[in-house]
Design a protein around this nucleic acid. Structure first.
Lengths: 250, 250
DNA sequence: AACCGTCGTTGCAAATCATGCAACAGAGGA
DNA sequence: TCCTCTGTTGCATGATTTGCAACGACGGTT
């Protein structure tokens, strides 16, 4: 709708992959370099980009500022922090906090494993819907019609031998998740990692976010992972309590 | 230079303070609300903003993604991580990593205190130049002329009884910092906290970033803080080694 | 040392693109 | 039910942005 803005945002995305020169960027959005130059200048004024030497441009500090300020404002994140941090320290494994935002599942917090072997993840990253425990938790409590819409519209790329690859299979899995109160990713995303996830609920019992524990299979086999479920549920309950959830406490 | 882009970026900044409605935003940039609507639509397409219900807009997930991807690409940050994390675990105090980017000192990483009393800070935030240990470290090794330019141009708001409030005082302090290899913020920023910081160096000995330890005065008095200097310098040296620094190792 | 090529930068003229207006729609409250 | 408040759309106007072409700075090569 707004051409110049559209172009500028595309530039930012390009820059997120690393520094670029002026006409590399011009090639990306297919316009004259003088046009890019002017866009970059406004972006620079607002500190969204930054010059690196004379030739290269990269993302600027305003982005860090904006993003982290917004993250901080997420109440769930603040409220869940103590419980998740404790879960991370006690188990030593990677803990993720994810939430459902505008049709996608996004990692909004992360506590790295204290073990030397770590998995790769990033705050702000979008989680695949069909093969992660957090996504299963978050989608499992959508209204049924919406759930079906999403499940049929989304892609099911096979990533490992265990990946669920059909809407029917996925919808059945969501029902199971809702029934037992936690979700499992049994190496459906990456061969060497499996995860469990549980919901964090708010005042009215609605699901605000999902906590997950991700464990390399070399550390714990499937049964070992299942043994962690009570600990995970305890953390999720503590976080939920902080968010005003009272149901089930009586 | 680019009006619509300029306006859109201003909108983002406004949204970083919380959700806004359409005409609240229109008031911010003083344009017709239809104009804002169209800008928001493009921002929404790129996931820079997100609708919350039908009335409110807030920042979207693309921002988190961009910012954290960019942060991750900072080599210093990755390289320093193990050393800083260890420093944080051993001392239990808040560790900050800051770097000098385009004329400002920005926090690029943070390890929270394990003590219940925590200080407030945020990744992406800009640090005041005249009263923080990290800024002193980073500015102390600028070329002399540049250093003087910066020191005379910057403001010196008095924040505590100890705040340095003149360019002369500050320049002298920078010389001292360079001489002894670490910087101190002796409650110059906030009354109840004092900090020490040291440089992380790269291949050619240039300062890439600064590590700091921030300690509430109720935990450690000035002498206690000074006793931590060797531990801080050890962490800084370890991080420097990871960044390719070899000088001084022989 | 002089040349050439590459890349960033600027002034200008043309028209595209963004803007404001005014009218419509839909939700919520009185 | 009516009224108000807020979001949404179509359209005409012209300000804004765009591409061009020429300039300048830098670096590498012969």
């Amino acid at each position: 709708m707004s051409q110049s803005l559209d172009r500028a945002l595309t530039l930012l995305r390009a820059l997120s992959e690393g520094s670029r020169t002026l006409d590399e960027l011009a090639a990306v959005i297919e316009v004259h370099k003088s046009t890019v130059l002017r866009l970059l200048r406004t972006l620079e004024e607002h500190r969204f980009v930054q010059r690196e030497g004379v030739r290269y441009y990269r993302l600027g500090t305003a982005l860090f500022d904006l993003a982290n300020r917004a993250l901080e404002d997420l109440d769930v994140r603040r409220a869940a922090e103590p419980a998740l941090s404790e879960l991370n320290e006690e188990t030593g494994h990677t803990v993720h906090l994810a939430s459902y935002e505008g049709g996608e599942v996004v990692y909004i917090d992360k506590y790295d494993s204290t073990h030397p072997v770590r998995m790769y993840s990033r705050i702000g990253r979008r989680a695949p819907l069909h093969c992660t425990a957090v996504a299963k938790v978050l989608l499992s409590e959508l209204p049924e019609t919406r759930r079906r819409e999403v499940a049929t519209a989304m892609p099911y790329p096979r990533l490992t031998a265990n990946t669920i690859t059909s809407p029917e299979g996925y919808l059945a899995e969501l029902d199971a998740v809702r029934g037992r109160g936690f979700a499992v990713d049994n190496s459906e995303h990456e061969d060497f990692i499996h995860c469990i996830a549980a919901p964090i609920r708010g005042q009215r019992g609605e699901v605000l976010a999902a906590v997950s524990l991700s464990v390399p299979k070399v550390f714990l086999d499937y049964d070992g992972l299942m043994a962690l479920v009570p600990r995970l549920l305890r953390a999720a309950a503590a976080a939920s309590a902080e968010c005003g959830w009272t149901q089930g406490k009586d």
